[in-house]
Design a protein around this nucleic acid. Structure first.
Lengths: 164, 164
DNA sequence: TAAATAGTTGACTAATTCGCTAGGTTAAGT
DNA sequence: ACTTAACCTAGCGAATTAGTCAACTATTTA
């Protein structure tokens, strides 16, 4: 388990998706606008997230991304693991023969510690993060900020849905 | 809080130091030999650890490094923070004005999550890690492995201490 | 059916970090 | 003096980060 900015971007974007994901899919352009993340970089991250089965891409006009599961069933550890290709952090690929063909201290210690962190992050779901009131407030304000850009599109989609 | 191999090296080295730190200081050469980490890289890591006040360097023959505090008073989060220069992970340096001069989602979410991870790692001390029996076993075997290299030096030092 | 939208893919790039090497200087012990 | 070992600095190749650009494919609407 590594913790880098890449993982942070992914978690932030997924939370944004969880917040705005209603019946209508959310486009990466919307997320990029709200979270000020490069669109192309988001595309790379979501390609991995999609392959991990956490999100579903819907093509064509009115398309975008949706969570594949409920927010409460997606945890932070999974998101980070999806975008961070885990390089074998032990020189021997987990075989335990890094030092004189035997297990090294790193193995016993760090692997265990890494597992603990993973377990910890696995206990935190997107749903949990949504609960936090502070997140809700910021999200609400961000919607307002981006309203001028997104509003028309959104309104258009909603109208279309109502007519369907 | 970031988690990279750099931090892992630092934690591993500090644990090695904690295990072997008796009355006699431990040289970086010893640690480098036991943990198969580059000596010069270790020097860089320990420069930071020393500046953070976690270890004390003793120069000259018979010198080496010692823990500045007891193992139970040094936690994993501090070690990682010491070697990982924390790049301001919010674009605005924690001022909370990254997006339209207001706090962004990243702030509310990731900073909070990062704090949780930090708090968690702060609860794990070197002393706690020493308790783990598996660590003890590996350390014992590693001592045996490195015995041919280190034994003479160690014996020499002990003799010197007894005579003092 | 044509046009517009939007996801998908891949190649490419500048900047940074990682892990390490090489070479020194300084302080302390014998 | 000589050795030891901490301490310091510069630099290097590889990897990663964060991002751009461009082409392509699928879907929907007109």
């Amino acid at each position: 388990m590594r913790l880098t900015t890449k993982g942070r971007y992914a978690v932030t974007a997924m939370l944004d998706l969880a917040i705005h994901s209603q019946a209508v899919p959310v486009t990466l352009t919307d997320i990029a606008t709200r979270q000020t993340i490069s669109l192309s970089y988001l595309e790379q991250l979501f390609a991995r997230l999609r392959r991990s089965g956490m999100v579903t891409g819907i093509r064509g006009p009115g398309g975008g991304y949706k969570l594949s599961r409920e927010a409460k069933d997606i945890n932070v550890a999974d998101i980070i693991a999806a975008v961070d290709e885990q390089i074998d952090s032990t020189k021997c690929g987990g075989k335990g023969d890094c030092q004189n063909n035997q297990a090294c201290l790193t193995h016993e210690l760090w692997m265990g510690l890494s597992d603990q962190i993973r377990n910890y992050l696995q206990g935190i779901s997107l749903g949990d993060l949504l609960q936090k009131s502070s997140v809700k407030e910021v999200a609400k304000r961000q919607e307002g900020d981006a309203k001028k850009i997104i509003d028309e599109t959104l309104r258009y989609r909603e109208t279309r849905l109502e007519n369907a």
